[in-house]
Design a protein around this nucleic acid. Structure first.
Length: 596
RNA sequence: GCGGCGGUAGCUCAAUUGGUUAGAGCCCUGGACUGUCGAUCCAGAGGUUGCGAGUUCGAGUCUCGUCCGCCGCGCCA
């Protein structure tokens, strides 16, 4: 194998005259009969290679030119030749190497390629399914190569930053035990103990806490996590976290080190990162944005008008208020241009989030309201416009329901409208910490309290001591880092005293026996001198997505799964041999035909 | 589990109200061409319209079912 002297992205005018050897894939070819051009691609770029009619009549030279004319898309070749200038009128400004070309004097065919289902260049697109099925072709696209290489660099920055702060990377088990609550576990049957199962970790949460008890002091890990839940554009069944845990720390210590990691990542990616990341508490975020992951790139905040609404004769408003609900609104700048069909569509869309509908009105000239529910709003029109700051040409959308539903719907509406109506300033990155989450919330369906973060999160101790009778008012010591409306990570100060942990389990109605059975090992560990500790986990996939502006998490993962959790490349998941089932003492109960 | 959108040549798409032999570009094959750069020109090959029923004289088109993909809801402590 003849060694490359250069890659396909680095030759410049200064190299003219050099003898070089390049290897790569035929991205395109242009056969003019007497001269053949090949654009040769590797991960670094594209270089034009020129094959001219050979001067000598030797068999070898003729054969080589014949081969050059036979080259097709994605064939793999090695070429030797001399770098030549293209000359001003022949430069290709689209290529970094566009001022030179390599005049080939030796061509070696390393491999042929079948006709490709799609050409991996910027001009051709194909279905998501095809991209995954032929992922090796898709990965040759510069965009994908770039994404994976940036992901690598981001990982390196994470490791370097934490290494500089004396963190130790420790691996934790993938084969572990199933723990209750949280997401559904992926199970792995045990052969040696045929009636038992391992579970793949949803996160290394318990192990990293035990590492703190073990005196590691500062731990991190770039680690795969597994959750068997349905997929979304930003969710895969296996995803990667930067998992971090520190001993003897406060919230501020965790936030400081996280900010440092993110700052270095943003510097790498040439994106801004603020000297001071804003911090808002959960209640404020819910009140102003209707969500715990606010997008601060635009305004359109929620405005409560319950007091004004009660002065109207509008049944929808009064009905909501009468049953203890609220009336709030969001102003959509320029939204008055929306048609009746479009606003009806919004009302229908709002039902996905539990709303009964979405009243609206338009702000017309002279600060008057028109269309929609305008006729009900006459008595409050002036003050409504004043309070919301709405302008002529805006659309005001109202939510009237329980506070929870109204915040949810208007929060979603705010994001949707900003996105769809181009109200998001391009190129902005708005980071924000959301803190003081409630410790628990009441689960209406199950008639019990559920944790917001996880059951090892420390309560705010003042609240814990004073609000035992109203647990939903207690705050926890949890925090989330959010960028542009996407949750990038979250963590908390943990409980390090076994007595408190036990009491929190009690609050969650996790019985003594169950706690002992499922979390006994953690409770035991806490009894042997567990230091105060806390940490965070950042979603690597989402950080990379944000940095490159990807719309799908699949675009930053080399081999992702489809929405139904299958892999078109390998056809996983797949049936296994009968013998494998026998070894595990497993039996498929539903015959394949009935599953459909 | 539910809702929305989609599935026609290897790829991207078209096909009037349900009406003749389902077309075009790219790719591929053969040919022409000494400066292209998403080369161009000529010719050719290439189809179970995702799959299965139904309605009809006639279905790519209408109906039902089903599979797959994408987006969302539920779910994701």
């Amino acid at each position: 194998m003849l060694k490359r002297t250069h890659n396909c992205g680095e030759l410049r005018l200064a190299d003219v005259g050099s003898a070089v050897r390049l290897c790569g894939w035929v991205r395109s070819y242009r056969d003019h009969g007497g001269v053949v051009f090949v654009d040769l691609r590797d991960r670094e770029g594209i270089t034009q290679v020129v094959f001219g009619v050979p001067d000598d009549d030797s068999e070898a030279a003729q054969q080589q030119y014949k081969l050059a004319r036979a080259l097709r898309h994605e064939w793999v070749i090695s070429i030797g030749g001399e770098v030549g200038p293209r000359g001003e009128e022949r430069n290709n400004p689209k290529l970094a190497t566009g001022e030179i070309e390599v005049l080939c004097n030796e061509l070696v065919l390393l491999n042929r390629s079948d006709a490709v289902p799609f050409e991996p260049d910027e001009y051709h697109t194909t279905s998501e399914e095809n991209r995954l099925k032929y992922r090796y072709l898709d990965l040759r696209r510069p965009e994908m190569t770039k994404a994976l290489r940036l992901r690598h660099q981001i990982c390196r920055v994470m490791r370097n930053t934490l290494d500089e702060h004396d963190f130790v990377e420790v691996e934790t088990p993938f084969l572990t035990r199933s723990t209750p609550e949280g997401a559904r576990d992926f199970l792995v049957p045990s052969r040696m103990q045929f009636d038992s199962f391992y579970a793949l970790p949803q996160s290394p949460q318990l192990f990293k806490q035990i590492l703190m008890v073990g005196g590691l002091d500062r731990y991190y890990q770039v680690v795969r996590c597994f959750r068997d839940e349905d997929l979304r554009a930003d969710r895969q069944p296996e995803f990667t976290q930067l998992d971090v845990e520190l001993s003897f720390c406060s919230e501020q210590d965790v936030m400081d080190i996280t900010n440092q990691v993110l700052r270095n990542i943003c510097e790498l990616c040439d994106k801004p990162f603020p000297a001071d990341v804003p911090v808002i508490d959960y209640d404020e975020s819910m009140r102003r944005f209707g969500t715990d992951r606010p997008d601060l790139r635009f305004g359109m905040e929620l405005v409560d008008i319950s007091d004004l609404a009660s002065q109207t004769e509008f049944g929808v408003f009064n009905g909501a208020l009468g049953s203890g609900g609220v009336v709030q609104c969001v102003v959509i700048p320029g939204g008055a241009v929306m048609t009746r069909k479009e606003t009806d569509g919004l009302a229908n869309w709002s039902k996905e989030f539990g709303a009964k509908g979405l009243a609206n009105t338009k702000v017309a000239a002279g600060k008057t309201l028109e269309t929609g529910v305008a006729k009900f709003l006459t008595p409050i029109a002036e003050e409504l416009i004043e309070r919301t700051g709405a302008n002529e040409g805006d659309l005001i959308c109202f939510g009237a329901d329980t506070k929870k539903i109204v915040q949810r719907v208007l929060g979603e509406l705010r994001s949707k409208m900003a996105r769809e109506r181009d109200l998001v300033p391009p190129g902005e990155f708005k980071w924000v910490w959301v803190v003081d989450f409630p410790l628990v919330e009441y689960n209406e369906d199950m008639k019990r309290l559920d944790v917001l973060h996880h059951p090892f999160t420390s309560p705010n101790m003042d609240d814990w001591e004073t609000k035992q009778d109203t647990p939903t008012e207690m705050k926890s010591r949890a925090y989330d880092i959010v960028c542009n409306g996407m949750e990038m990570g979250g963590g908390s100060i943990r409980i390090h005293q076994p007595e408190l942990q036990r009491k929190v389990f009690d609050l969650l109605d996790i019985g003594k026996e169950e706690a002992e059975e499922k979390f006994g090992f953690l409770l035991n560990a806490l009894r042997y001198g567990a230091p105060p500790h806390g940490g965070i986990a950042l979603g690597l996939d989402r950080v990379v997505m944000t940095m490159i502006g990807a719309h799908s998490i699949r675009d930053v993962i080399a081999f992702p799964k489809t929405q139904r959790g299958s892999c078109p490349l390998t056809n996983a998941p797949a049936a296994v041999d009968e013998q494998q089932l026998t070894d595990l003492d497993l039996k498929i109960l539903t015959p394949p035909a009935e599953k459909q």
